[in-house]
Structure formats: structure tokens, C-alpha cells
């Protein structure tokens, strides 16, 4: 029956036109649906940004530019400034990326180029499993296992050996390092959390590099490192940077794990060994009992600032990428 029907429709010439019309309609519909999906992202983003801006308007109106440059967070005197959490957010995310990017690159390279084939699948599966662990688990692990290690061993060592250095010394000074809670601890926990994201993206895209290219390079006498650096990385650079952005986004916005190990205090300190605060942790901690209008408005304004911070960080990264491409004459 079906065969007969299709044979018939092929045989009848005027159905070509209806088919073309039908296809055209389907195509337009498909386009609209896909465009709708695309606009959905923009609309959500704009909606959240506008809502947080509107919700935080009282804070911006009351404190003005001081909200961004003041580190005061006095809930009793109702003076609010976002500098300490903004600084904490940026510093912890930066530490996370400084650690996570090279490690992820190593993992991905090992899995695609060096590891024996029987090991590749289990390790890749393990990475994906790591990506699925809820952040509260990382937070609790961080607090109960990692914080004591930092407080007893790494932090005192860093403080003893590095605090005397010029410039860098300030990052490792302070008096509360033996607690183990702080920006460095939070940054390292964040790094562990974002490594699975970055490394699995890197691994996926490294696999797309044509074997031909790599083998040609090997044939010309390249070492594995040269192949990785000169062939694999340039070929996959855009996707690799996309993966890093993904990790960065997660590091900037991570809440639960950070609040466990960061110390949650609104004090601005240059030292990485001192407790601090992040935007997401501040909101999570304080929103439920924000008992005055201006307090609540300040927390929502903080959420808006997280948007702005993320946007600026991503914009700078894009600009650097473009600069890099220009240098290479692309």
C-alpha cells in the first residue's frame, strides 16, 4: 500500500508543486522554531538582567557608584558595598582557572595521544562522573578533608616561605591562615570542580583533529609536545576556549561548595590565605533573612553585578582571542 501510494505521488506531476509548498512551509516552521529557541536564550538573559537591575535599583540609587567600590557590608547600619564579594568571586575563579586549564589540557592530551587505548574509556568515564557530582558534596569534602590539610600544611608553608617576597608576599600574608578556610582553598576546590568540564570538552575536540595532520607532523620529526602545541591546539583552539569559558562560568557562579570553604566574611584582604566572600555565596547565605528593603535590594544588586562581572570577563577573553588571531594574520 505504502509503496503504491508513494509510486503514485511520484507519478503525478502536479504534486511536485504541493510538495514544494509543503516543504517550504515545513522549512519556515522549522526556522521559526529554531529562531524561537535562540531568542529564548536572549530573552531569558535579558529578563534576568532586567529583573535583577530593577530589584536592585534601590541599592544603586542609594549608594551609587560607592556600591561597587566600597567593601562595607554593615547590615545593622544599612551600608552596603560589593567590593569584597566581587573581589572574592574574581580571585577564586582566577585561581581555579590557573590550576584547571593546564591540568585539563594534560588530561585531554594524555587521553587522546599518550594513554594506552584500554585506559582511555575508563578514565574518560571517570571524568564525566566527576562532572556529575553535586557541588554540596565538593563543599563537604572541601570542609572536612581539604580544609584541615590546607590549614595544617599548605597554608603555613606558603605563609612561611612566600610572605617575605616582594609583591607576591602580600598574597600569602595574614594571620588566619591556620584555619584553612579562604580564597586559595576555595579556588582549589573550584578548580577540581571545573576540571571535568574543561577536560571533557578538550578531549572531545582533540579527538576531532585529523590523524593525517598529526601523522604528517610526526613524520617530519615532531615530538609529541610539538604535535600537541603546534597542531592539535591551533586546530581546536576555538572549541578549547569555549570549554574554558564553560568552566569559568561555573567557577564564577558556584555557590554551595564555595560557601563551605571560603569563610564568608565581608572583609577585603589581599591575602589568598584569608577568608573572604563571593557574590553567589553572599546571596545564598543572606537572602532568606534579609530583613530590610535596602538589604534585599543590595543582594539583588549583587546578583546584577555578577552578570556584569561575567560579561566583562568574557568580553575581555574574547578580545584577547581576537588579538591573538590578528597576530597570527588570520
Amino acid at each position: 500500500m505504502v509503496m503504491a501510494a508513494s509510486a503514485e505521488s511520484i507519478a503525478v506531476p502536479q504534486s511536485d508543486e504541493t510538495r514544494a509548498r509543503r516543504d517550504g512551509f515545513a522549512d519556515r516552521l522549522f526556522r521559526r522554531i529554531v529562531a524561537g529557541a535562540g531568542i529564548f536564550v536572549l530573552a531569558t538573559l535579558a529578563g534576568v538582567a532586567l529583573t535583577t537591575l530593577w530589584g536592585g535599583r534601590e541599592a544603586f540609587a542609594t549608594f551609587g557608584f560607592k556600591f561597587v567600590v566600597s567593601s562595607d557590608w554593615d547590615t545593622v547600619g544599612k551600608q552596603f558595598g560589593a567590593l569584597a564579594p566581587v573581589y572574592g568571586t574574581l580571585v577564586t575563579a582566577a585561581i581555579a582557572l590557573i590550576i584547571a586549564v593546564p591540568v585539563s589540557f594534560g588530561i585531554a592530551l594524555y587521553l587522546t595521544e599518550i594513554a594506552p587505548p584500554w585506559l582511555r574509556t575508563p578514565v574518560a568515564a571517570a571524568i564525566e562522573l566527576l562532572a556529575g557530582i553535586p557541588s554540596i558534596i565538593y563543599g563537604m569534602w572541601g570542609l572536612f578533608v581539604f580544609v584541615p590539610i590546607m590549614g595544617r600544611h599548605l597554608n603555613p608553608w606558603l605563609n612561611e616561605h612566600l610572605s617575605g617576597w616582594p609583591v607576591v608576599g602580600a598574597l600569602f600574608s595574614g594571620t588566619q591562615y591556620s584555619i584553612g578556610l579562604g580564597m586559595l582553598t576555595a579556588g582549589i576546590v573550584l578548580a577540581i570542580m571545573v576540571i571535568p568540564f574543561i577536560s571533557s570538552v578538550m578531549r572531545e575536540v582533540f579527538l576531532t583533529v585529523p590523524t593525517r595532520l598529526k601523522e604528517s607532523a610526526y613524520a617530519l620529526g615532531s615530538t609529541t609536545w610539538e604535535v600537541a602545541w603546534d597542531i592539535v591546539l591551533p586546530y581546536t583552539r576555538t572549541a578549547v576556549i569555549g570549554g574554558i569559558f564553560l568552566g569559568l562560568g561555573r567557577a564564577l557562579g558556584e555557590t554551595m561548595a564555595v560557601t563551605f570553604v571560603l569563610g564568608n566574611v565581608h572583609r577585603l584582604s589581599l591575602s589568598l590565605l584569608e577568608p573572604g566572600n563571593s557574590i553567589a555565596a553572599t546571596i545564598a547565605n543572606e537572602f532568606a533573612e534579609a530583613d530590610s528593603e535596602i538589604f534585599r535590594a543590595s543582594l539583588i544588586a549583587l546578583a546584577f553585578l555578577l552578570f556584569v562581572v561575567t560579561f566583562i570577563v568574557l568580553a575581555i577573553a574574547k578580545l584577547m582571542l581576537r588579538q591573538m588571531e590578528k597576530k597570527e594574520g588570520k
Binding site: 588566619q176 578556610l181 564568608n264 566574611v265 565581608h266
Partner: peptide, 21 residues
Amino acid sequence: KVGEGTSVQWPVGVGGKGNAG
């Protein structure tokens, strides 16, 4: 210097979330 409230600006130390924290 500090005053009273459901949350205040603590002069020193670290902050844990909830009684459990």
C-alpha cells in the same frame, strides 16, 4: 561598633552557614 541584628558586620573571624555550619 557592631550592634544587634539577624546578621551583623563581624569584626573578626569566619562565618559558617547555619547552626550546622
